[in-house]
Design a binder for these strands. Sequence first.
DNA 1: TTGAAAGCGCTACCAA
DNA 2: TTGGTAGCGCTTTCAA
Lengths: 336, 336
Amino acid sequence: MATRMKDIANDLGLSVVTISKVLRNHPDVGEETRERVLRRVKELNYQPNILARSLVTGRSYLVGLVVPDLLHPFFAEVAKALSTAIQSKGYSLIVSSSEEDPELEQREIRQLQARRLDAMVIASTRTGIADFDQLQKEEVFVLIDRDLPGLAANYIGIDDEAAGRIATKHLIDIGCRRIAHIRGRENSTGVRRFDGYRKTLIANGLEYRDEYVIARSRVDTQSLEQGAEAMRLLLHRNPRPDGVFCYNDPLAIGAIRSIMDAGLRIPEDIALIGCGNLHYDDCLRVPLSSIDQHSQQIGQRAAELVLSLIEAKQRPLPRSYILNPELVVRASTRRL
Amino acid sequence: MATRMKDIANDLGLSVVTISKVLRNHPDVGEETRERVLRRVKELNYQPNILARSLVTGRSYLVGLVVPDLLHPFFAEVAKALSTAIQSKGYSLIVSSSEEDPELEQREIRQLQARRLDAMVIASTRTGIADFDQLQKEEVFVLIDRDLPGLAANYIGIDDEAAGRIATKHLIDIGCRRIAHIRGRENSTGVRRFDGYRKTLIANGLEYRDEYVIARSRVDTQSLEQGAEAMRLLLHRNPRPDGVFCYNDPLAIGAIRSIMDAGLRIPEDIALIGCGNLHYDDCLRVPLSSIDQHSQQIGQRAAELVLSLIEAKQRPLPRSYILNPELVVRASTRRL
DNA sequence: TTGAAAGCGCTACCAA
DNA sequence: TTGGTAGCGCTTTCAA
């Protein structure tokens, strides 16, 4: 078995309490005693049992992250930033993948609750707020990326309607007149980016047409294939769109393939813009214009918020932190 | 505070032990009692405190994963597969990023040890085996991707020398004669892929030349930039290489940029192959030939191995599980 | 079938 | 400055 405080106490003829104090840098311990303890701790390579400590203090120094897909670069980036930020404060990160399945998400959240995490960060895959009231009562939790309107919760994300506006306006600015949209699901990001798209068309005197909007259910997990398929449908619209705003970058990458397979040019025949600004957008067959979502900042802010909430004496009212999306222009919309 | 077993016991006039038995499906509880308990558990949305349970049973149902970089698609894929596989058995995954820093890795491992994880999966960033003996004694742990020769540990990864051989042989087969290598660091993957490269040159009657091998220290974290820079150096060699094997795909992507910036064609002037077979290799400016590392299988196998070791009565001797790397040919080496 | 007692490894509190 | 006692929420053991 692993060494315990009791073992060290016995070795040195001290009490467990004294050992505990030394390890927590409690002031009232004699200098000589402290040194003896620390020496023995080092010799035995002793590690205090955090489980036992947590049981007493009620703090687990554990933060949970629940995302739809760990592999999606956006969430991977959030995870990395979050992990780095909390690690330096002695916290560890438990990750959990909901696979875009609300039921699985619910089970994972319950499982994590049983672990008595100090906080949870969730990019929820659900569209309604049912069942979230349990969380709300006790836990420190923060929603990221996807908002759940109606739920009084902390939220960090970009202004998704603005993202839709900026992307669509950019396409208009470079001369597109028949602008299509491969949209996201019925969650806040999908709906708001679509709203931004539609409103911008109208505000700029362009017609909104249903047949220029493609909705697919698996846009988050099967993005490449779904993007290619959606684009193939759009290519058969008459007249053919001359610009496409895609809900996310992987969809756009799939769309690139379909456009090129059809022998058309990007951006001359069809201009294309995505959302997410993934690392490798620059290296694609056609470097992809995109809207930056500040994934790293979201992770970092989530960490700061969560840590401050944990330390807080009383829970402040939930707030939303909305970051501004940013246009990144690359070849896929760069017309001469 | 959260509900406890004691609360339920008091409510129903039962003892804590009975509640505990019901929750663990212990057989000797009366049917009626069981139902009453379950009903109350549901009403209160009770979650047993895993911390407390772990303290008694010595099992935390927690698995740790320590990787150099969570953002690297290879490790993200491993993380996802691992997480999915253990989640279904009631385990959770704690992730930790070592940022390619051996000291940070050591601190993270210690931190995780204090949490009494049931097992740890490590893609170690160190080149020697110092300090690993502590781990060895008590913990269930599995190395992935990067082997530490000399350490009697479970290991799962591909045959990296074979990866180097296959990539180099492929370049030879398509007609390259001056084959360069942008190599990895001094860990098992870097060394072995390089060995495979060198041996294959010699075995095929080609000269091995030091100036065709570029070593950079930040190939794992700054891959794109490092790859571009290394390629620029190679372009100035005389005679210029006509084929390049890159330690990983991101390096190769950086290399693509330098080659095209120099006005050269891929693969006609210079053929290029990477390693990793990342998801988006297909969608790059020049679709990239690569060596598949079976990241998902590695994560899955790691999960299986770790779970079996946790359950095992006595610890079996450590084993290595070596997967066969696979050539994936794309445009970057497809010559007519 | 049920439950009382002991204890997992630690910290909080208060007395010496 | 040091340590005894109690207890965190649970499981294990064994007696009723």
